[in-house]
Nucleic acid binder design. Structure first.
Lengths: 220, 220, 220, 220
DNA sequence: CATGAATGAGTCTTCATTCAT
DNA sequence: GATGAATGAAGACTCATTCAT
């Protein structure tokens, strides 16, 4: 997952011991709370450490710098999202396209809304350069899962499942990201769900149809 | 456009003189260059002023603070995007759904890629809280234009054009936003274009079809 | 009055013309309004000029710098205070000590309270080094007036009227200065008046008595 | 003492360790030195920190802002003054009015002149709004001590000792404050002492006499 | 291992003053 | 004479990071 990261952002020490893992976890959760409380720009290492009940020094024992901390928080969050999506998609394998489209959308919405406050809190960090890379990596992983499901779809075949899967994942995640960031709350999840289902289904149908009529769809 | 902004972010001084307008413009362009050069986090008012060839004091004569400067840059950028989209969509009125879908996608891509470096530079600022509001306002405006086109579509009618238009705009802009941010460049605009066209067309067809079969589509 | 000031603080140009004097006056009044509105620390030359309805440049045509402006304002204020005191004391010449003491106190209180908001506004400027000198000069002038009255007092004679007068002036002005600064408003002028009268009368009686018993009172 | 202060001016960190207390103390002393060297307006947090031999950051670890630092310095100074006054007044309890008056004046003069340079240095800060409040609080405390002494005076009784005590304290402190600020040095402490004694004694006699003749003296 | 005081470079922002128009 | 845009030095305050205890 952290493949794209430069060496300096790898956690300083591997938390082999239980206590270490507990500390790291506390630090990550504290980060989210601080994010929620004061926002990204005012998240300071001292504040995070305080909230986690440890000293700044300890924080720096586990993370080489602020960015590594944030990266870790993002990674854990995205892992959670991915796990949730994978979990909710499991039953979709072998189902017809209509169900798959709806199910995928539902899975993404559920994953994102499961901890909506965290999703909102992480919106900014996710948007910065560092975050974008981690997001890309996570998206690739999710695309793999989705590709697997599409491949098993009885009533549809795709020329380039990988690419279609990637596009669906990209569309869903970016749409939800935008929705979550919208502080005017003009988007309620239920309305969004219906339209996203239409979008997912429509896209997959179009893609399939194009393939059936032998038109070449270039990869992303 | 700037309706949602608090008064404290309004420009401090109206640039009535030609020289003033030139200064403001220089400042905004310098901001983009700084953004490109060092990123959002390290954009400082001093650096921007330097790059614009004026003193910090001058910057503060036109903008009450850093955020107002950024907000201005974003507004100008989004106005440009919207103008470009509107311009490129003009010929779409009265055309069949397939053309409309493709045309809309092309318009958005063209607008975003027209000054791809600026788009990339502004990705981060666009993502923070302040930026999100301006984006929302601009999106609403664009949705109006799109709604107008959809209404004139001869081969499709929508139960709630406004909502569908908003969704299309949201989908296109968030997708492109994500694409632009992807520094791995795995997404080339041409591949993206085909898939986005499929998505737009598919979504609009689904939405229309759903309406024809009398299913109620809730608003966003 | 401005004897103790260094040359650089003398007004830059003598306002010989009526218009000039009007401008200077407007500037001084504007200063007081700004002082009232935002306090000493945030009084800026630009703000004063704005309030006076002229440009900063014009301000600098009449005052070499900010301090000179403030000094002018203080001088005008103290001249007003002194004029008021002198005016209110006029009838005291030739009256018995009791009346003189009361009358002096009343005159000082009246002068200070006449424009209580201005008195309060000028409290801080009066307290800084620059202000202290101007205050000292004004106090000396007032002491001269008081000395004249004490000399004409039928029922009391003083060994060193000058010194006694200076002390009374110092006591009254410093007491009122402190009273005016007290934002808790625990001191109402009426209560203060009674006690200050007692103080003035008591002091003058003690001083007189000491002199009668031939004790030498050193000058201040 | 600091009761009237808003929370934001409370010291940021309680100096529990010996080293911390030393740092705070060094910072306060450095402030006075800076005040003496460059005056109130040009006292900067950086300069103070430099003088104290620590970094600005350290200063801000103990004081939330410049004003809090100044407030602390003032508080420490006034505590010293009050302690000194209280100390020097101790022997006055039970003594006749004449001795009490003289003793009080002497105590105030001694306290103020004990560290005359500090007194002078703090003149300006004492005069600004923030300072005035702390002064008021300290004055109230001193008035309590003086009231206790006046109550035990065998040859005088007062209708409202509290008020009389407050007035004496106010008179003495404001007079000395003015005297200290006078850079022309026209006031030597010895001359001042004699006149202040007359004033204190005269006032107290007048106040007492008024009460004996049943005249009502309003409270301050 | 943990702590948290100390560091100081780096930010934003203000404002007295000048000078070309 | 008047104007007000431009200047830039200076100040308050923050915060990632280190290191002695």
């Amino acid at each position: 997952m952290a493949t794209g990261l430069e060496p300096s952002f790898k956690p300083r020490k591997q938390p082999v011991q239980a206590r270490s893992e507990a500390t790291v976890s506390a630090l990550c959760q504290a980060s989210i709370q601080v994010l929620l409380a004061v926002g990204y720009r005012r998240l300071t290492t001292t504040r995070v450490a305080e909230r986690a009940g440890v000293s700044v020094g300890t924080l720096y024992q586990y993370f080489p710098n602020r960015e590594a901390l944030i990266a870790s928080v993002i990674e854990r969050y995205l892992e959670g999202i991915n796990a949730s999506v994978a979990q909710n998609c499991r039953a979709l394998s072998g189902r017809p396209l209509g169900e798959v489209a709806s199910g995928l959308v539902d899975a993404f919405i559920a994953a994102k809304w499961e901890r909506i406050d965290v999703s909102r809190a992480l919106h900014e960090p996710l948007g910065d350069i560092r975050g974008a890379r981690i997001v890309a990596a996570a998206a690739a992983k999710a695309a793999g899962v989705v590709a697997g499901i599409l491949e098993n779809c009885p009533d549809a075949s795709f020329h380039d499942v990988q690419t279609s899967a990637r596009f669906v994942v990209l569309a869903c995640s970016s749409l939800l990201q935008a929705a979550v960031a919208d502080h005017t709350n003009s988007l309620d999840p239920e309305g969004l769900r219906v339209h996203m289902r239409s979008m997912a289904l429509g896209y997959l149908r179009e893609t399939r149809r194009l393939q059936e009529t032998a038109k070449v769809v270039p990869p992303l």
